[in-house]
Simulated assay, not measured.
Amino acid sequence: MRGFAAELGVAVRTVTNWERLGAQTRPRPDTQAILDTALSRLDPAGVLRFEAILSRSGRSTVAVVQSGPHAWDYETWTEDIERAITAASRQDFTAASNLLERWRTRWSPGELDDRGLYLFARTTTLAGDLQRDRGVLLGPWSAARSYADAKVVFNQLGIPRRVAQLDLSLAVIAEMSGDLRGAASRYEELSRDGRLSGRDQLRAQLWVGTALDKQGLHGEAMPLMASAIRGFEAVDEQEDWATAHQKLALAHRGAGNLGEATRLISVAQSAGGGTSPLHQVRLATAHGHVLLSDRATVDEGLAALGKAAATAATYGMSHQLRSIEGIRKGFERGGGNTKFR
């Protein structure tokens, strides 16, 4: 019972009650969704055993397995998406993934109407976000695959804004995977794409600068980032405004302007913005990178990176861990003399 409860993500007491009540059990809709998902994952032999048990009890699988969602399924599905967003904002990847996967695997797209397809595409997009934040970027079970699958459904539904947002997410995956030129080009196109909101266009512009900065083109990157900062201020996007200061700080560090880099990092730290572990790790990593570039603050820089790495490891942020390790190795390869000015 403990094993079955753990597999389903429910309390042991719940399974005990099912065993005690037997055929009189009437699970809640969300619990029934979990059970149906577990059934859908069985191999053919498991399904046959299940049907044999039902036949001996005089029941039919028709009474147990639904061919498509009911109205209350949509309500619970929507609630679980919101719960997954909240869990993901805390980098509780396991809880968020469990909430999403119970719906993503319950029905095939062919069994869903437009409302169900919309929820399926949103669920698949959020699964891609989780995979991206975990650093699972490419391959069959990756962020890139989830984003591509969701894009197909949003195209089918005729929702261009969602399609464009996924194009932006796929450009992020290209950048994170090392295709900096391709990402910069795609960001530049999307920064002028009328399908996107003003905020998303500004984010695309900022990320053009990020991709250029990573190629060592600091002088080209900085005006784009500064323009994005002014745009975020105009539309009152505090978190994006703070993030843009952080990225501009790294561009100035790359150009050797340590005084300005330090000032911009201080602005990003004092601006507040996001309080999620991911935001904290990104900011601490950027701060540590700047501190390593000054002989007088090397120890502080290593300490900041160590703290960021510990948080990233706690929450399973493998991409952030790789970035931190790359900064450390670059510092060591330079004999402890990287970008000193």
Rank of each mutant, 00 (worst) to 15 (best):
R322M: 11
R83H: 15
G198S: 10
Y187E: 07
R145E: 13
G22T: 05
S270K: 13
R41P: 04
L39K: 09
V136I: 15
A304Y: 00
G254S: 08
R295E: 13
T86Q: 13
S270L: 14
S97F: 14
G326Q: 12
A184Q: 03
N337P: 05
H289I: 03
I85D: 13
E237S: 14
P69Y: 02
A71Y: 07
R161K: 14
G254C: 03
A221D: 06
E233Y: 12
L8P: 01
V136G: 10
I327W: 01
L206I: 00
K339I: 09
A303S: 12
E189P: 05
L21Y: 11
E233F: 11
N17I: 08
G128T: 11
R199E: 12
D30P: 05
A304E: 04
S318K: 09
D179I: 01
A296K: 14
L321Y: 08
S227H: 15
A144F: 06
R49L: 15
A121E: 03
I53E: 15
L292N: 03
A96L: 08
A6F: 12
R83T: 11
R102H: 10
E111C: 01
D213Q: 08
I324N: 02
R132M: 12
T285F: 02
R106H: 03
R28D: 09
V152D: 07
T14V: 05
T37S: 09
A221L: 06
G336A: 10
L302R: 10
D193Y: 09
A284D: 08
A284I: 04
R83Y: 09
L100P: 02
D200E: 15
V267Q: 07
R203G: 05
W107H: 01
G273W: 07
